[in-house]
Each structure stands twice: as C-alpha cells, then as structure tokens.
Amino acid sequence: MDKSGIFKDFNFKLIVIEALLDKEPLFLEELTDLKNKYLNSFEWYSGNGPIVEIREYLEELTLEAGDLDKVKYLCFDGGNEIYHILKPDWDGEDDLFDVVSVEGFQNLKNLKTVDYISMCYPKVLEPFKQAGIEINY
C-alpha cells in the first residue's frame, strides 16, 4: 500500500507522479530540491537500491486533488523519468518498479488514456478497460 492511502501499489503511484512531473504539481519544488541534493552528489554504484530519502519522500507524499485532476494520460514505460530519479543507475532489467495493481485510479477523475509499453502484465490494466479508459498497446 502507498503510505498516503490513495493507491494500493506504490509503483502505480510512481506512474501517476510521472504523469504530473510536467504539469507543475504542488510537490514539484520539494522533489526538485531532493533531486538536486541527492542526484548531484550521486556516485554511480551497482547493486544498491533506490535512494532512500527520495523513496521515503515519494511514499509519504499525499497527492492533492488538484494535482490528481490534472492527470488525463498515463504511460507505463520503463523509461519513465521517475525511475531514474529514484535509482539513477536503474537499467530496467528487473521488476523493481513493476505495477501489480492500479487500484486507486478512481481518484484520477479525468484519466482518459493509458499507453502500455511495459511495467506490468496486461491483465493489471483490466480495471481501466472496465471503466471505459482507452488503452493503447
């Protein structure tokens, strides 16, 4: 469970956060400060997990209704920027960020379209179909 209680799966929350990065969300300044603090001093490493401080921030982050209303489109793709903010050396070759549930998408009242490239099994997206949201494979 995402610690804010909005989404069942933290990895799905990451996809929603990704969708908001270019929409001036309320959390952008704080996230940018964290990126600058930890990524600028980041030394490439291998085998370590996500940057703990950034992960904790994102886990605790409560997405405001105004920001959730901005989400009209989601993209399930291993190349999403949010993954490289969390783990700069992530190569997409493991299931670290795989989505197992989209429960909570009901909070995205303006969601119309989902692009599916990777990051979950197609059956995970079934609730979108049932809600009439277009899925592009």
Rank of each mutant, 00 (worst) to 15 (best):
K109N: 10
E60F: 04
G49P: 11
G66N: 12
L20T: 07
G132F: 08
C120M: 12
A131V: 02
P122N: 00
V100Q: 06
D22C: 09
L31M: 08
S4Y: 01
L111H: 09
Q130I: 01
L34Y: 03
N110W: 08
Y45M: 14
E93L: 12
K112H: 07
E103I: 02
N40D: 07
V99W: 09
Y116I: 07
P50Q: 05
I133C: 03
P122K: 06
K37E: 15
F42V: 01
G92S: 03
L68I: 05
I54Q: 13
N48G: 10
G104S: 12
S41M: 03
G47I: 07
K8A: 14
N136K: 15
C120P: 10
D33R: 10
K13N: 05
E18N: 15
Y116D: 14
D95R: 04
N11L: 12
W44V: 12
P122S: 00
D67V: 05
V52Q: 07
K70M: 03
L31G: 06
G66I: 05
E126M: 08
D77K: 09
D91A: 11
A65N: 12
N107C: 13
L20A: 08
L58R: 01
E18K: 05
S41N: 15
I117W: 10
P88L: 00
F10T: 05
K109Y: 06
N48A: 11
D89L: 01
D77W: 11
E53I: 08
F42A: 11
S118R: 08
Y38A: 00
N110Y: 01
D22N: 14
L61F: 00
G47F: 02
A65V: 11
G78D: 06
F42N: 03
G79Q: 09
Y83C: 09
K23R: 11
I6M: 12
L28N: 06
F42R: 13
D89R: 01
N11E: 11
G104M: 12
D95L: 09
V102K: 07
A19I: 13
G5S: 04
I54H: 02
N36L: 06
K112T: 04
P127R: 08
D2G: 04
L21N: 01
L14A: 09
K72N: 12
K23W: 00
E103K: 15
D94Q: 05
D115R: 06
I85W: 02
I15L: 11
D69A: 15
E64R: 09
K70E: 02
F27D: 00
Y73G: 01
E56D: 13
L61N: 00
K70W: 00
D115G: 03
K23A: 08
